[in-house]
């Protein structure tokens, strides 16, 4: 998967910060980039493997979203903190080691506290290491910008990715089983079981939506929707 970092991200945003208004403008821009314009899920198309594989229910999507968000914010912060001390030639292995240690923490935590979700996400938790979004942001943004901006960028990119995960997970779960938040108690504990909503009962589930081909089709529709909104915005 190619990495399509736009030039806006690569230039050093902290170089000339003078007024409060400009500071706010930078944060606004970062949020806009991460959530919509340069959304990792539906614009950069990074991290498609977990995106398509685990979004068969909202619970799975939410679990992966939280894990990815945490790793992304933490790795961006750490990479930004050590950016002056890392030799350029070996920066990628170092970034990968940081990300891998963070993912290991997440994996062990999920194993301890949300065991069933850990089982249902399976291989896709350790695979967060290879998620291109994380290494992409570390390389394209965090290694060139200050800690505050890098952390905020990680948060926004993570939220953008989470939004796509949740949307895809919700669409697929409704189509396939007619429910929302099925099995949420495996993630948040028993108190949250009231969140499970059954929209309709069906004896014959629409299996395609739960299978990977359905994920591709629905993902395509979401991207088309985003492009349609953008096109409409340009026309006006």
């Amino acid at each position: 998967m190619t990495q399509q970092a736009t030039p806006e991200n690569e230039k050093t945003v902290e170089s000339k910060v003078e007024t409060n208004a400009e500071k706010n403008a930078i944060y606004k821009e970062l949020a806009w980039q991460g959530l919509w314009k340069n959304n990792p899920g539906i614009v950069q198309l990074l991290g498609l493997c977990p995106l398509l594989a685990v979004t068969n229910t909202v619970t799975n999507a939410l679990g992966l979203a939280i894990a990815t968000l945490f790793v992304l914010v933490a790795s961006n912060t750490l990479v930004s903190m050590i950016r002056h001390h890392v030799p350029k030639a070996i920066r990628i292995p170092i970034f990968v080691m940081i990300i891998a240690s963070l993912v290991t923490c997440v994996q062990l935590l999920m194993n301890a506290f949300t065991y069933e979700l850990y089982l249902s996400l399976g291989i896709f938790i350790p695979l967060i290491v290879t998620n291109c979004i994380i290494i992409g942001r570390a390389e394209a943004f965090a290694s060139k910008n200050g800690v505050k901006h890098a952390a905020f960028d990680g948060l926004m990119m993570g939220l953008g990715f989470s939004a796509v995960l949740l949307l895809l997970g919700a669409t697929r779960e409704v189509l396939a089983q007619g429910t929302l938040f099925d099995g949420i108690e495996t993630l948040l504990g028993d108190w949250s079981s009231f969140l499970t909503i059954t929209l309709y009962h069906t004896e014959t589930s629409f299996l395609l939506a739960a299978l990977p081909p359905g994920a591709f089709i629905i993902m395509g529709l979401i991207i088309a929707l985003k492009n349609a909104i953008d096109a409409r915005g340009e026309n006006e």
């Binding site: 014959t204 629409f206 299996l207 395609l208 939506a209 299978l211 081909p213």
Partner: peptide
Amino acid sequence: VLLLISFPVQ
């Protein structure tokens, strides 16, 4: 194929 995969019973 879509139907066969999605609704094998019917």
